[in-house]
Design a protein around this nucleic acid. Sequence first.
DNA 1: CACCGGTTTATTTTT
DNA 2: TAAACCGGTG
Length: 710
Amino acid sequence: MNALFDKLNSAQLDAVKSTEGPVMAIAGAGSGKTRVLTRRMAHLIYNVGVPPHHVLAITFTNKAANEMKSRIAERLNIPTDTLWVSTFHSMCARILRTHIEKLGYERHFQIVDDDDSTQMVKMLLRDMNLDVKLVKPRTLKNHVQKIKAHPELLEDYKEPVRGYLEKIVPAYQRQLKRNNLVDFEDLLLLTIDLFKQHDEVRKYYHEQFQYVLVDEFQDTNDVQYELIRLLVGAHRNLFIVGDEDQSIYAFRGANIENIRRFTTDYPDAKRVLLEENYRSTNTILKAANDVISHNKSRIEKTLYSTKGEGEPIVWFKGYTYRDETEFVAETIRRLVHQGYRYEDIAVLYRANNTSRVFEETMMQKQIPYQVVGNTSFFKRKEIKDMVAYLRLILNPDDNYSFARIVNEPRRGIGQKTVDMLQAFAATEDASMFSRIDDAQTPLKKAATGKLKRFKELITDLRKALENVDFNTFMDTLVEKTGYKEMLQYDDMGDVRLENVMELKTMIAETQNAYRDNDKIDVLTQVLEDIALKSQEDERKDTNVVTLMTLHAAKGLEFRAVFIVALEQGMFPLARSFDSPAELEEERRLMYVGMTRAKEKLFFTSAQQRHLYGEPTSNPDSVFIHEIRDELIRVEGLNKAVTRSYTRPVRTAPPRDADHENDINKGDKINHSVFGRGVVVNVTQDQCVIAFNKDHGIKTLLKNHPSIKKV
DNA sequence: CACCGGTTTATTTTT
DNA sequence: TAAACCGGTG
């Protein structure tokens, strides 16, 4: 026996040792999923003797990838860079850097992020004189991405969106390619194209990746699924780990169905169920099970733990949000007094804007805290500007970057001038940069003069890049562009300049890692990292309370967890009220949040809170009432009130249980949250109910326990 | 072209 | 509340 199998239970051991053929591991929250993944990889390399670079592990976040890499490398005492452990996107970027020329792109292609995509869609909308108010650019961008992945879905759209998409999608794609840019979706789609069109490339990677592991499989979208299918060769050594109950990214295209699809595509797949939880007390697990069992379609599984029963969940309801935040702060105080460290504690909320009131109270009460996942470093304006400069220096024909910084800092080159130049350049299908000196220019002398000076600036900087070292180059860049001077008159100038200098450090580090490469390659690599690793080494303050969204908490664990603002409309969000599918996703989010807690779990809510400046009051979150009474201790406002526990829907045989509620058109019903209503329509498993004016018409799950026939 | 002030709008977001 | 956006004026 060797240490690779230490401290693994039999199910985990099975998952680690079953190396050949397709394997699916269903891993409940806290069941030691990461441990299984890393041990399996180590086992493959160390015991089975597979060379490290023949194993591919795909994760969703850089954080997860890095953690896995370092754990394996440490255990096996090998350098991390021999391992192919990466996100879908960086894996694709890496493959495309070598092969993208086969698809007509240039090797030094740049990656645009979501904000850039939205910006481009917005510009296209304006160019085409389409109404920006009718469809929001952000929303339209999401549709564009969807159509890129699934062109056939265009037919499902109604006017005017359909017409917009028909025009925008090809224009958007043309523009990206023209500027040698790819977006996140392209990274996946182009890799798929590459594999489909070039057998020799595909064969090459089939030989290379003899074993493939995919983490968080429930979060894969259809394109990623396709990519995995193409990637796995005849050996079919594919290992997936997932938990459908933790799928919380459907709004981004994640498709839980992929888990089921896997079982049909690989009917011989071995199945391992990891149900033993190493994280939470049984009280927390039971409560989490209570909540999640209200979801209709799922593979039934019940987590258990050896951590004992633990204490009941405490639900505090205050009059106002002030009571609520103070309860949280005071409880944190008490916990710390009992020996908890600040870093053992997390405050989780559904939407970012909730953090503000908690921050205020934390500050007042002098409790050290950090807010995770606000504006990431690379999304800051000054960094995006610098990136645009760097991209333009690398590729002067990049119109998009050109437009971003041509007048940043102010050079008196306004929108009109840029528009004219763009139109002029478009007639020759050339870049703006290349036509500045053109004799035919329709631009005024003054404007042309300013543009020429700008062009000179960029050309000079390009020379500087080639002739001096990176540190000097970056100094020259902020100096010559006038960016540094601009920041001097900026309130936040100091911080911004510091951020820009941070970039300098990053380039230096990358250069060390790729010492032999030439400057262009190094800079390309830096820009790729910036695009793909958006907030990787967000510096973690030690020993502080963590405030973050429930989404951000996925994969983490804390001794004590507060889930706050548990009110209808706040969590679950109001949007989910009339969509059973969205409500189920909210419920999974609740499940994820609850299972973050190791020892203590707190729910809080307020009778009244300010929303967008207006005082509002909401009923208690349905999720609280989906938990058995004996698991919750009520404090604050509702202390004396009996709670209305709603039993879970039986999930076991959902097939012929349709008559369970036996709701028909015209029936009068009573809903535990919305009150009385009349059924106006019934479909297979849903029904449409008209409630009184406060709630209006809603579509709900027919068999949901919250509905009772009157 | 730049700046001021009124109006509008409001999830989550690994890449 | 707060930030983004638009339209008018200097």
